[in-house]
Design a protein around this nucleic acid. Structure first.
Lengths: 251, 251
DNA sequence: CCATCTTTGTGCACGCGTTCACAAAGACAT
DNA sequence: ATGTCTTTGTGAACGCGTGCACAAAGATGG
């Protein structure tokens, strides 16, 4: 999956392994699709195929939540949807603010997946005064000056940062100071946050680079063998450092 | 980091651990910033702090690439930038196509991080005839009918899918059939691909759900203890399955 | 040339996550 | 009620990734 994880480093949360938590939304999506087709039950094998994972892994994941299956039959779809939703905290309302309404921020505001599943875009915030008041996805953009007030008035605990890299850390600090304890960061920067604040990072540039690595490896496997260790002992062929801004977000 | 990874499951690639590969872009970004400030060398400690990782981990990561450091001094910034760039395959040109030019696709097309680092947006593709010919980020959108020709003419091996969930699998198959072997998927669906094709997934909805889980846990830790195991033995309180489309992408 | 001091490179141990493989549990038919 | 068949739930083994802690390497100063 894309995005690395600058995340809860050590401590396992509430007995449920982090890796399992990351897969629960996947199961939930597959189960919701089954639910819409009015499928009453699924076996671990079927559900695993739909979610793209191993069936043993799926069963072990569910075992952390409790024994919700029936041997010889499978799992009750509706019941499981509810249990996972509850476990993920999706049965409650999560007001979210998006900071940085550029191309990406606007795309996020329009993202249908936000509105469903309990996430509600409470406010859009941008530093550009020209944007203030203009509606994006039906929600008027507000100015950064009011950030603290907006957070507190709406009881927001989840913030999305879609600003340029240079502004991210400062925005982050203001969000945290105002009470936000979970941040989804789209800016290509490492965010420093105090203990107790969760940060998840989505970085397009990194994902592409990882793909490029594997792509190069694939290409090299066929053509290689002709020039053995030449690449490894490559000299300082001054290709010059690409004078490249550290991937500034569109914002 | 955001994004999970439906990725190379087993086989380690070229001796470099997958976890290390995922961190190389992080190091590269930090190094590029240092390079711009004309810093000649860095210690593992400094660089690790800038990249947000452990210094021992960083040294071990670099040891997979070779011994590029000097004991007592640190690493030569320029040299390391070049070595990592080469290892990631960033010294060559990677033409990329983006399929699905909705809000997100447009944001991606405008993303500055694409253009730098060897990635070049070769074409924008959408199924909507009304979009055909219209420029987005200075590049005219082309119709899906020409997908195969575009891929082949430009020698594209990396494709980005930003279509609605329903169209993703079909687009994926056409991309693969046309020669694409690496895919960055923004659509909330599990993509089935043949052996040898790499897929990385970026899923906003999943990231938010993971944050919500931890957020709920944090909130529960303070207030809890009053109602002990009530949550775990929760009855089938028919909250009804939220009739929710499986998070359709804005497209 | 030698001593000291800094920083790398890595051997080792530990813990998490994955997978196999199977026993136990229950549905279903007779 | 009993047997058969399906599918869950999990014990155990394995492998990857992480972090500690230290020896070796080299720079620097006298």
């Amino acid at each position: 999956m894309a995005t690395g994880r600058t995340h809860r480093p050590a401590t396992r949360s509430r007995g449920i392994p982090e890796a399992t938590v990351a897969r629960l939304p996947l199961y939930l999506r597959a189960l919701t699709a089954l639910s819409e087709r009015s499928v009453p039950t699924v076996s671990s094998e079927e559900l695993a195929a739909a979610a793209g994972v191993n069936s043993a892994k799926l069963r072990k994941d569910f075992s952390y939540l409790g024994s919700y299956g029936t041997r010889g039959v499978g799992y009750d779809v509706e019941y499981l949807v509810y249990q996972i939703s509850r476990e993920l905290g999706l049965t409650q309302d999560w007001p979210v603010v998006i900071v940085g309404i550029g191309n990406l921020g606007a795309a996020l505001a329009n993202y249908g997946g936000f509105a469903s599943r309990g996430f509600r875009v409470a406010a859009l915030i941008d530093a550009d005064p020209a944007l203030a008041g203009k509606p994006v996805a039906g929600i008027p953009v507000q100015h950064t000056d009011d950030l603290e007030k907006i957070i507190q008035d709406n009881g927001v605990s989840i913030g999305v940062i879609a600003t340029p890299a240079g502004a991210a850390q400062q925005v982050c600090e203001r969000l945290v100071a105002a009470g936000v304890t979970s941040i989804l960061n789209f800016a290509p920067t490492v965010l420093n946050v105090p203990e107790g604040v969760d940060v998840r990072k989505v970085d397009l540039s990194i994902e592409l680079q990882i793909l490029a690595f594997h792509e190069q490896r694939k290409a090299g496997e066929e053509a290689a063998d002709a020039v053995p260790a030449a690449a490894t002992s490559g000299d300082t062929t001054d290709q010059g450092p690409d004078g490249d801004v550290p991937a500034v977000m569109p914002a």
